[in-house]
Design a protein around this nucleic acid. Structure first.
Lengths: 120, 120
DNA sequence: GGAATAGTCAACCAAATTGTTGAATATGGG
DNA sequence: CCCATATTCAACAATTTGGTTGACTATTCC
């Protein structure tokens, strides 16, 4: 399934590329929050925070339920799982020392043009 | 260590928020590649691709070694691991059905103001 | 030396992002 | 009804992004 749906990942990673929005997600990890509550930690207008909320919503990272005059937001884990899975593809690059060794060897090979017959 | 170094994550997630750069990383997962090789799959000028490479470099996702007239790039797994780890914080939101149930209950609670004594 | 190759740099442009403010909408509570 | 609260919307400005083209640098090859 290697990168079959690039559009969602674009939106998800873009949304995650902003500390304001990441902080909002952290807060939402503690349960439902209203837009006002999400905006509260930031020194910006509510309208600006509202745009960040919308960015998260567009990326599918949160869902919104309008209850009376307040909009309750909750975390939507699916896209986070997708992003996590995408990154997981590279996991062996930082986990296994054998893979690391293998990478270094491949690197060394490309540095010495003629690998000079496997042995003998 | 909850979000202690936001600047790098900004750059990393921003870099990942573009399908061109994600494709470059995929190619680099197969070993070293020159800037020209990384640019080859795309219908854009080499200069444009070069900018993408620089974005990856600025995010620490790749390292570059100038060999003669070609710039060899290789994957730098550290920042990918950081991003993966950041996302891992949310893992229980999509893995455990119990956590999912818990979330739904919390949600139900907030919907019915008086949760009406834990049992009895 | 001279030409082809690999890549960056600078200037420019269009579009998107991120913030602001002020007005508009909708709900809730005396 | 009136007013405060919660939030979005529209218009605007500054900045960033992602692309182009043309010139420049460095290296390799003959």
């Amino acid at each position: 399934m290697v990168e079959s749906n690039p559009a969602p990942l674009d939106a998800v990673f873009h949304a995650l590329g902003d500390a304001t929005r990441r902080r909002m997600l952290r807060d939402l990890a503690g349960g439902e929050r209203s837009v006002g509550q999400l905006a509260e930690p930031f020194a910006m207008s509510l309208a600006a925070a509202s745009k960040h909320v919308k960015a998260l919503e567009n990326a599918g990272l949160i869902r919104r339920e309008v209850r009376g005059r307040t909009h309750l937001c909750r975390l939507e884990p699916g896209p986070l799982a997708s992003a996590h899975e995408w990154l997981g593809f590279y996991e062996h690059f930082w986990t296994s020392r054998l893979d690391e060794l293998e990478r270094l060897l491949r690197e060394a090979d490309s540095k010495t043009p003629p690998p000079r017959g496997d042995d003998r």
